[in-house]
Amino acid sequence: MLISDARSLEKRLPRLLRVLRAHIRIACLAAMVLQMTVLVAMILFRIPEERFTSNNFCGVAVLLLICAVAAVRQAAHVAFNAALERNDAMFTADGNSPAVSISAACPLRALVVLHVQLTGLRRDTFCR
């Protein structure tokens, strides 16, 4: 029983790592924007640094990061659905795991690729 569970985990682990890596990438970019906003606020509006080191600000920062990841996920989902409707993206069945083919001419290709990474699907590229 334990051996089969370990093998199952080994098969799912790369997909889980890809999904986590995509989410962490979004959170890092959102954190960088937040840091730049704080820096500009400190310089332009002369807000003291102590205001940005409080527990309240840290809690708000975490909530902002979570909201940023959720907003980017939603935007990527909407772009993916639009690409499916325009036939710029389509599902392909290769073996046990589904893959997504994305047209090179897709206008929202970056968001569609991000959606595929966030969901852990495999990605194939096709040209038209």
Rank of each mutant, 00 (worst) to 15 (best):
L34F: 01
N81M: 11
H23M: 09
A71F: 07
A22N: 03
A99E: 04
F126L: 04
S54R: 07
L34T: 08
V19Q: 12
L121Y: 05
Q74I: 08
F52H: 06
F126T: 01
P107H: 02
A83M: 02
V60A: 13
L20A: 14
D5A: 14
Q117K: 14
F80I: 04
N96D: 11
C28M: 09
V40P: 00
L114I: 04
L9M: 06
R12K: 15
L13V: 06
A83G: 07
V40T: 10
S103D: 05
I3H: 06
R21A: 11
A82D: 13
L114M: 10
I3L: 12
R86F: 01
G95V: 09
L2E: 13
A76C: 09
T37K: 14
V38D: 00
C28D: 12
V78W: 08
M42S: 04
S101M: 09
M1H: 12
L29E: 10
T125N: 14
H115Y: 13
A99W: 08
A68H: 05
S101D: 06
V19N: 05
V38T: 07
I47C: 03
V72A: 05
V78I: 14
A93I: 15
A31G: 12
T92G: 04
E10G: 13
E85Q: 14
K11P: 00
P107E: 04
L44V: 11
F45D: 15
A105C: 07
A89H: 03
S54A: 02
S54Q: 08
V100N: 02
L44F: 06
M90W: 03
A79Y: 02
L84D: 04
T119W: 01
F57Q: 04
P14H: 02
V40K: 13
D124T: 10
I66S: 07
S103A: 09
A30E: 09
I24G: 02
L2G: 15
L13M: 09
S54M: 01
L44A: 14
C106R: 00
F45H: 13
V62C: 07
V113M: 03
N96T: 12
R18D: 10
G120C: 09
R123H: 13
S8N: 13
